[in-house]
C-alpha cells in the first residue's frame, strides 16, 4: 500500500517547472528549501531578542555604577553627565527635549499631512496626483541628515531674523530669542520629514473606504466637503490614527536632525527658542566620541537607548492595536 497517490507523478511533467524527478528527491529538496526559509523567518525573532538582551544587560551595568540609581534616573530633574563636578542622571530633561521637538513636528505635519491626504484621495485629479505623489516620494526619500543641515543652515538663520521682533516676549529666565541651536528649527525640519509618512499612510486609509459610502453621502445631497470630512475621514479614522502614531514614533526616534540643529544642552523647558537635547541627540553625542567606552557617561547612553526603545515600542503596539480593534469593515 502506498500513501502517495501514484497518479500525481506523471502530472509533474505537464507543469514544465523543471526536469522530472523522483518523488523522494523532490520531497527532500522541498523540505530543505522550506527549512531554510523558516530559518530566515526566525532571524527576525532573533534580532528582537538580541536587542532586548543587549539593552537590558548594558542598562543594568549602568545602574551598577556607584552614583547612579533607578530612583535618580526617574526622580531627578537634572541631566548633566559631561559638565560640572557633580553628575546627575535624571532622564526627564532628555524626555522633555524629545517631546518638545516632537510636538512641534507633529503640530506641523499631522494637520498638513492629513489635509494633503484628503486632497489627494478625494479632490485631486490624475494630473495633480502625477505631480504631487512624486514630490512627496522625493521628500520621503531625502536622508535625515539633509533635513538636519537644512534646519541648521536655512531655518535657524530665518528664525534668527525674527529675534528683534520677538524682544520682550517670554520670561527673563527663558527669553524667546533664537540661538544657533534651538528646538523650533529642529522641530520644523522634522515636521517636513514626517509629512510624507502621515500623508501617504492616511491616503491609503482614506482610499480603502469603499466607494458606496461616498455615493450614499452624495446621494443625500452632501457637498464634497461633507462627504470627505464627515463620512470618509471618520470611516478611515483607525488608519489615520495609526499613521499619526507611526509618524510620531518616527519623530521620537529620529537622530541626525536633532543632533545637528537642536543643540547639546539637556534641560527641562517648553521654550521653542531654547537649545535642548533629545534622547537620540544625547546618544549620538556619546557614541560619536564624546565619552570613553566603559565610563558612566558612556554606559548611561544605553539606559537612554532602552528608554527610547520602550517608548517607540509602546507607540507601535498601540498603533497596531488601534488598527486591529477599531477597523471598520465594510463589504
Amino acid at each position: 500500500m502506498t500513501t502517495a497517490p501514484s497518479n500525481l507523478t506523471p502530472m509533474t511533467d505537464l507543469t514544465r517547472l523543471g526536469r522530472p524527478k523522483s518523488v523522494a528527491v523532490r520531497k527532500f529538496r522541498e523540505r530543505l528549501i522550506v527549512g531554510s526559509l523558516a530559518v530566515a523567518a526566525t532571524f527576525s525573532i532573533f534580532v528582537t531578542t538580541t536587542i532586548l538582551v543587549v539593552l537590558a544587560r548594558e542598562t543594568i551595568l549602568f545602574f551598577r555604577f556607584p552614583d547612579v540609581s533607578l530612583g535618580e534616573f526617574f526622580g531627578s530633574l537634572e541631566w548633566n553627565p559631561l559638565l560640572g563636578a557633580e553628575k546627575h542622571f535624571g532622564i526627564w530633561p532628555l524626555v522633555s527635549g524629545t517631546l518638545l521637538v516632537t510636538v512641534i513636528a507633529a503640530s506641523l505635519a499631522l494637520p498638513l499631512g492629513l489635509i494633503t491626504a484628503i486632497y489627494l484621495s478625494e479632490y485631486a485629479g490624475s494630473r495633480v496626483r502625477a505631480v504631487l505623489k512624486p514630490a512627496l516620494e522625493i521628500l520621503a526619500g531625502i536622508p535625515t541628515v539633509v533635513y538636519g543641515f537644512f534646519a541648521l543652515m536655512f531655518i535657524t538663520p530665518v528664525l534668527q531674523k525674527l529675534n528683534p521682533t520677538l524682544e520682550g516676549i517670554g520670561t527673563p529666565e527663558s527669553p524667546i530669542s533664537f540661538g544657533g541651536y534651538n528646538a523650533l528649527s529642529a522641530g520644523i525640519a522634522m515636521g517636513i520629514m514626517i509629512l510624507p509618512i502621515v500623508c501617504s499612510l492616511s491616503e491609503d486609509a482614506l482610499r480603502a473606504v469603499p466607494r458606496s459610502l461616498r455615493d450614499g453621502a452624495f446621494a443625500l445631497g452632501g457637498t464634497r466637503f461633507d462627504v470627505s470630512v464627515k463620512v470618509v475621514v471618520p470611516a478611515a479614522l483607525s488608519g489615520i490614527v495609526a499613521a499619526f502614531l507611526l509618524a510620531i514614533s518616527r519623530a521620537i526616534g529620529e537622530t541626525m536632525i536633532v543632533a545637528l540643529a537642536a543643540g547639546g544642552m539637556a534641560r527641562l523647558t517648553a521654550n521653542p527658542a531654547a537649545e535642548v537635547q533629545t534622547m537620540t541627540g544625547y546618544m549620538a553625542q556619546i557614541f560619536g566620541g564624546d565619552a570613553p567606552a566603559g565610563s558612566v557617561e558612556y554606559q548611561s547612553s544605553y539606559a537612554v537607548g532602552a528608554t527610547l526603545f520602550c517608548i517607540t515600542f509602546l507607540l507601535t503596539m498601540v498603533g497596531q492595536y488601534i488598527l486591529r480593534r477599531f477597523r471598520e469593515e465594510y463589504d
Binding site: 527576525s44 537622530t255 527610547l308 507601535t316
Partner: peptide, 21 residues
C-alpha cells in the same frame, strides 16, 4: 502571528537602537 507582529515592531525601532545592536 508572533513573527508577523515582531516584524512590524522591528520596522518601528529607531535606527540608532540598531546602531547599539
Amino acid at each position: 502571528r508572533i513573527v508577523q507582529t515582531n516584524i512590524l515592531n522591528l520596522a518601528g525601532v529607531p535606527s540608532i537602537v540598531y546602531g547599539i545592536l
